[in-house]
């Protein structure tokens, strides 16, 4: 598997660090070539107003998503069949895969040990957001 090395900094770059800007002389010819460092936020978040972070408890979506992972959830996206979604079921937030077939919808766990939840009018379920990234600490 190819490994891509991304150098990033966790603190987004803020305003210059000088209290009083001094404007004198010619601008440095290098100014045009200054690269800002990569901001992971910019890479992971398309809709800042609609993006929430949640933490996973349990293994219902293993092996793709495991206990302790942080999920980046975008509420601006419309889920389609196969999307991993956060849904509110019986007053709790849960992460499952949305599956649509023959006009009916189900919330399915990737882990076979869990039963799918058919989304019928009797079930108290609201889709809350679409999972776009999984953040897992490995070291």
């Amino acid at each position: 598997m190819p490994i891509q090395l991304i150098v990033y900094q966790l603190l987004p770059l803020k305003a210059p660090l000088y209290l009083m800007a001094i404007k004198a002389g010619f601008p440095s010819p290098a100014d045009d070539y200054v690269e800002k460092t990569l901001d992971l936020h910019e890479h992971l978040i398309r809709h800042p107003a609609a993006t929430f972070f949640v933490r996973v408890s349990g293994d219902s979506m293993a092996p793709l998503i495991t206990h302790g992972d942080i999920l980046v959830v975008d509420r601006a996206l419309t889920p389609h069949s196969g999307s991993i979604v956060i849904a509110a079921v019986n007053g709790e937030l849960t992460v499952k895969r949305l599956m649509e077939q023959h006009g009916s919808s189900m919330l399915v766990a990737d882990n076979d040990a869990y039963q799918p939840i058919a989304l019928t009018p009797e079930v108290d379920c609201t889709l809350w957001g679409v999972v776009v990234h999984v953040i897992r600490t490995v070291a």
Binding site: F52, F53, V54, R55, S57, G58, L93
Partner: peptide, 13 residues
């Protein structure tokens, strides 16, 4: 503080 504190973000099962 669901949206401003890493230790307090919502839990999903």
């Amino acid at each position: 503080r669901y949206t401003t504190h890493w230790d307090e973000i919502p839990i999903v099962t």
